[in-house]
Amino acid sequence: MDYKVLIVEDSPITRALIISTLEEIDGFQFFESPTGVEALKLLPHHSFNLIITDINMPDINGLELVSFIKSNPAYAHIPLIIVSTEGTQKDIEKGLSLGADAYIVKPFEPRELQEVVRRYLPCQKRK
């Protein structure tokens, strides 16, 4: 069965890039959410295997989302990767202290994202 990946990011282009980068790895089903609120709505309906989130977003920010997910026993186990721009180092540190599993700095190398994702979903092969 495909792994379910939730991408929370307000930039449609960044979402598209993340997806096309990960499409090179087999067996993913992608869910996109442009806001934190929409991500909250999706969470109980799917059992996600991986969540990728931005930090700077309108309404609920990425840190708040991380805090919510990692403090909720129903979701705390889901690997969570922060994708954020450099220069928000403090925000990234906060995210890690809130329980995020990894972070990637934008602009990212496709391979870098693939490697981090494989670390958390290890059984995937390359196309």
Partner: peptide, 13 residues
């Protein structure tokens, strides 16, 4: 700030 931030992100990629 957010516009510049996003533009930086996507142009870098």
């Amino acid at each position: 700030f957010r516009s510049a931030h996003t533009l930086k992100g996507i142009s870098g990629m």
